[in-house]
Design a protein around this nucleic acid. Sequence first.
RNA 1: GGCGCGUUGGUGAAGUGGUUCAACACACUGCCCUCUCAAGGCAGCAUUCACGGGUUCGAACCCCGUACGCGUCACCA
Length: 485
Amino acid sequence: MAIRTRFAPSPTGYMHIGNLRTALYAYLVAKKDKDGKFLLRIEDTDQGRLVEGATDIIYQTLKDCNLKHDEGPDVGGDYGPYVQSERVNEGIYHDYAVKLIKRGGAHYCFCDQELVDTQRELQEARGESFKFDDPCKKISLEEAEKRVANGENYVVRLTVPESGTTYFDDEVYGRITVDNETLDESILIKSDGFPTYNFANVIDDHLMGITDVVRGNEYLSSSAKYNLIYNAFEWDIPRYIHCPPVMKDEHNKLSKRNGDASFQDLQDKGYLPEAILNYIALLGWAPEEDREIYSLEELTQAFNVKRIGTSGAIFDIEKLTWLNGMYLRAMDLDSYYNLVEPYIIDAIKGNFDKKAIAKIVQQRANTLIEIPGMLGFFDEFKDFDIELYNNKKMKTNPEVALKALEAAKPILESINDYSEENLHNELLKLPEALEMKNGQVLFPIRLAITGEQFTPGGAIEIASILGKEETLARLNKSIEALKNA
RNA sequence: GGCGCGUUGGUGAAGUGGUUCAACACACUGCCCUCUCAAGGCAGCAUUCACGGGUUCGAACCCCGUACGCGUCACCA
C-alpha cells in the first residue's frame, strides 16, 4: 500500500520553523515511497483562533519550499474536502460521533462548564490531579438521545475504560503504554458542533487513508486516546512518527509567540528556502552518510524515520548561516545574479557593472541581506585614516604605500581597457620592479581606491569595476593625502 | 502534583557491550595559502558520554534508582 502522509496545520498565524520541519518530514516520509502521497489539510476547527491570511501563508510557504502536496484544498483530490470546517458542514464528524457513541466509544455529556470547574477545584484542593468524573456516563443512550432531540446543549466526550492499559507504537519513541485511568474523557464534539482536534484528526486521518501520522511529540501523551477511538471503530491504526521539538534554547521551544524566527523572517533575512529546509532536516534527524548538504530530492532518498532522534534540538542560526553561504557560493553566476540584483541595485546608485559586483560578493556573503553593507565604498569614497596603511601581515606602512602608489599611477594611467586581465598583467610587473612583495603594492592600491579596511574583492577586481576615471581620481586623492600627512 | 518523554562538547550529532574511552559538521583558537576580507587547507578544542548504584572479564551503549529538563492533564491544536 502506498504511503500517505499529511501536513495538518491550523491557520492561526505564521509558519514557524518547528511546523515547517514537521511538514518536511511528512513530505519526506511520503516521497520516499515513489507512489507516496503528501496531503495538506487545514485544521480550522477552532473558529476563535483563526487568523486571516494564515492559510495563504501556508500555501506560500509550501510553495517556496517546493513541498508540493498531491492533495489539498487548493489542488483537490479524491478525499476532500480538505478543510475541516467544510467537513463540519457536510456533517462528517457528527455522523461519526453518533456511530462512535453507538459503539460505546463515546457518550453525550450535558454538564456545564461550572460543574467541571467545581470538580476541578475540589480535586485539586485534595491534592489530586484533575480528572473529570462525568455523571452523564450513567445516562442511558435512549434518554440522552431524547435530550439531544429536545434541543438541550451537549458535547460528546470520549468514553475511557476504567481500568486496563492502552498502548501505541511509535516509530521513533517505541511502544508507549499508559494506564486508562490516567486518560481524560476529552471532548470530541464541542457544543458549537465543531469537533476538537482529538476527534477530527482520527476521523480525517482514517477517511483520508493516512498511513503515517507525522506530528510533534506534544501529542505523545494523547495518542493512546486516539487509539481508543480507532479501536472502537475497528479501524487500522496508522504508523505514528512523533518528532522531537525544535528548541530556541535549552528550555524553550521555538515559537511564534516569543517572536522567534518564522520561515518568512528567515527568508526576509536573506536565507534561501533550500538552505532552510536542508538545515531543519538536520535538526532531529541524522543522515547515515557523513555529509550534510542535501537537496530536497537527495533528502527524500536519504531520509529514514529510524534515524529521527528523540531529544529536542536547538535551532542554531550560525550553522544555518554557514549552510546558506554554501548554497549561495555553489550557484552559477547567472542564477546568483538574478537573486542578488535587487540587493545590489538597492545599495549602489553609481553606474558600475552589477554582475561583476555580484561575482565578487558571491564568495563572501552568507546571507543576501548582508550584501548592501559590503558595497558602500562604490558610491562613496570617504577620507580614511592613513594608519590603515600600516599592515603587519602585508608588510606595509604609509611610506611603502606611497612608493607603491606613485609607481602604480603611471601604469594605471597608461591602461585604457580596465579589464581584470589587463590590470593584472600590468600591475603585477610592479612588485618585481620595485623589489616588493605583491601585497606591498596591491594592498595599498586596494586601500587607496576604496578607503576601506576590508572589501569584497581585491585591488584588481575593484579597479576594474570602478573603471579608469574613478580609479585614478581616488588614487590621486589618496596620494595627496599621504603626501600631506 | 499525576502520567508520558528525554539527558553524548557552546551547538547539531555519530556511536547501541570489546579493532572509537567518543566520527563528522557549525562555532571558537592557532597555523598555512592569499592583493584585504571571505573561501580553501591543516591543527587544536568532551581523559569523557547528567549523577549514583548494579549486571559483565569488559558499558556512553543492558538494568535499577536519583537529579534536572521538556511535554501533557482546555468546548487549543
